[in-house]
Design a protein around this nucleic acid. Sequence first.
DNA 1: AACAGATAAAATATCGATAATCGTTGACAT
DNA 2: ATGTCAACGATTATCGATATTTTATCTGTT
Lengths: 242, 242
Amino acid sequence: MTQPRSITQHLYQQLRAELISCKLRPGSRLRTSELSKRFGTSLSAVREALSRLVSEQLVHADPQRGFRAAPMSSEDLYELTETAMGIEAMCIRSALAHGDHDWETRLCDARDAVLKAPLNTKKEPKRISPSFAKAHHAFHEALISACSNARTLALRQLHQDQSERYRQLCIPYAPNDSLRSGYDEITAAAISRNADLTIKLVAEQFSRNVDRFAEALDSEQTVRFWIEEETAKGNANLATVS
Amino acid sequence: MTQPRSITQHLYQQLRAELISCKLRPGSRLRTSELSKRFGTSLSAVREALSRLVSEQLVHADPQRGFRAAPMSSEDLYELTETAMGIEAMCIRSALAHGDHDWETRLCDARDAVLKAPLNTKKEPKRISPSFAKAHHAFHEALISACSNARTLALRQLHQDQSERYRQLCIPYAPNDSLRSGYDEITAAAISRNADLTIKLVAEQFSRNVDRFAEALDSEQTVRFWIEEETAKGNANLATVS
DNA sequence: AACAGATAAAATATCGATAATCGTTGACAT
DNA sequence: ATGTCAACGATTATCGATATTTTATCTGTT
C-alpha cells in the first residue's frame, strides 16, 4: 500500500475504489460539493480527481452539467467482456512466449491455490467467497505475469477493474463445483505453450456468467448491489498523511 | 468541428493536439503557470485538462513535481505498435463479421483514393504528403468502420493518436511506390471475410517503418520533429465561445 | 387544468490568492 | 577543493470566493 503524497492522489484512489465497488452507484450524479464535504477537501481537488477518472471511463462529464458515475448496461457489459478478452489474449500470447521456469512454478502454485479455496462462506452461501475470487484473480494474474508489454498490462488492469465493477451486481446463486473447472486445463495448455487453446479456455471461463449479469441489467426491477450505497451524510475523514 | 462548451474542454483538446503533434516536446515539463499564461486561463483549468491527459498516458504526473509530456522511447514504440495492432485486429474481426455491402463500397472507394493520392509534395519531397497520410488513415478507418464494439473503437482511437505522435519524428526519406503495396490485398482479404489474412497484411503495413523510428530514438543525436517546438513566449488566444 | 415565461435556488465552472514543497545557490566548515 | 547545511526563489498543490449556467419553482394567462 503506497502512501499517497497529495490530496488529489488520495481522492483519485478513493473515488476509483468506490466507483469500482459501486458504493457510488452507476449513473448517479457526483456532485463536487457533496464529495468535497464528505472528504473534507476543496472543490478543485475533487474536480481534478474526477477529471482523471473521466479518461478511464469510470466517470462521465457532461460539460456544464457536472460529473456522473459511468452508467451500466447489458450492451456495454458484452462489449466490455469482448474487449477485455481480446486484451487478455494479447497478454497471454506474450506471457507464453516469455514465460520461464519460474513463471510455470507460479502458475502451478496459483492453480493449486484456486482449487483448494472455499467456494462460499457459511454466512453468505449464495455468494462467491472473497477468498475464492482472490485466488481466481491471482491465477489469471500469474498466467499473464510473464507478459513483457507494459502497455498491454496497463490496459488489462483497466479492463479488469471495469469488469470487477460489473461483478458487484447482486446476483445470488449457490456456487457449485463447476466453478473449479478450467484451471487445470488452462495451466496445462499454457505450460505446453499452446496459446490458441489457452485463450479459448480462458475465454470460456470469462464469459461464463455474463448472461446472468446482463439479464439482471435488462430486467425491469431496479438493479441491486452487494455493497450499500454511499449516502451524502457520510463523513469520511482523510487519513493524516504522515 | 464541435464547439467546446467549457474552457477546460477547450484546453483539453488544444493540449491534446499539441502533445500529439509534438509541438509540446516529449519529456518536456508542462508548467501550469506557463500554460495558463499562454492560454489566458487560470491554473485550475490547466490542471484539470492535464489531469485528463494523464489517464491517456499523454502526460505524466509526478506528485509534487508537476506534469510533463509523456516521454518517447524505442521500447515504448515497439510495445505501442504491438498493442495497437492487437486492438486493430479486434476491430477488424468485428468489422468483417458485421460489414455489409455499404461497408464494402466504402472500403473499395478508400482503396482507390489511397492508390491515387500523391506520395509526396514538391516542396517536401522527403516527407510523406499529408494527403497520402490522410488517405491511408481513411482506408484503415473504412476497414474498421463496421466494427460494432464502441469500447474497442475508443481504444483504437487512443492508440492511433499515440502512434501518430511517434510519426511526428523527423525521418527524411524519399517515399517510393512500395508505400502503395498492401491496400489491394487487404481489401480483397477483407471482402472475402478472411480475418486472419487481413490482420496479417495490416500488421505488415503497420510495422513497416517502426525500425526506422526506433533507430532515430536510440541514436545519440537529439531527436528532431517536423513541427517546431512551442516556446513559452507564444501567446495563443482563446477563441471567444459564442 | 395546462402551458409559457419569469424568477429563485442550486450546482457547476472558473478564478486569484495562499500554503506547502522542491531545487538551487551560496556560505561555511572540514 | 569538497561536502554539508541553510536560506532563497520558483513551482506546485490547495483553498475559498465569484461568476455562469442549469434546474426547479412560481405565477399568470389561455
